[in-house]
Amino acid sequence: MLAVLRCVIRRDLLLAARRRSDVLTVLLFFVIVVSLFPLGAGPEPALLRTIAPGVIWVAALLASMLALNRLFAQDHADGTLEQMLLSATPLGLIVAAKVLAHWLVSGLPLVLMAPVLALQFDLPLPYFGVLVLSLALGTPVLSLIGAIGAALTLGVRGGGALLALLVLPLYVPVLIIGAGAVEAMASGLGAQAYLLLLAAFLVVAAAFAPWVAAVALRISVE
């Protein structure tokens, strides 16, 4: 059982390594979207400092959603997805492994890049820790919920925009609590409660999302 999961993760990471451009496009998209806001909203530091967490979180959310169709679409096209459906290992676990690999490739880079962008927004240094921690807890939840959306819209025309329409409402709680964590830190309330809540989201999503995505996959491949 474990060998299969390790094999799936290793394969996906190998594929991502072989096609590095996919990883970079997600990261560059994240950086570009964040850099657009000062151009749009004006460069005054005071303004940028207040909108920094919100902007970085929304950009991370959009970037991770952009990378979602890479999760199943390619496997569906070349038939490997059917082999996963017919494997002796429960599909939920395979989906969890794939989502973990997907997060390592498209979620983690965002978390590591966020402090650099926070500098751009002149965010006070003590808040960096909370920002990175909230993203580290939040982006896996985005990938997990996104996996359900990706599975539902497999092979459907207009997939990209449709995926966004399905998944964005479900991202709202994660966005509010995630961006709110830094906000609460700034207003002196302390981000303890928010980070714990994000961790709770992560645990619940990790427990249920892969199985729901597995059901959705079986429906889509039929």
């Binding site: 096609r19 070349d78 038939g79």
Partner: peptide, 8 residues
């Protein structure tokens, strides 16, 4: 479908 990955 051959169920193989072109990049591998």
């Amino acid at each position: 479908a051959n169920a193989i990955k072109d990049d591998l």
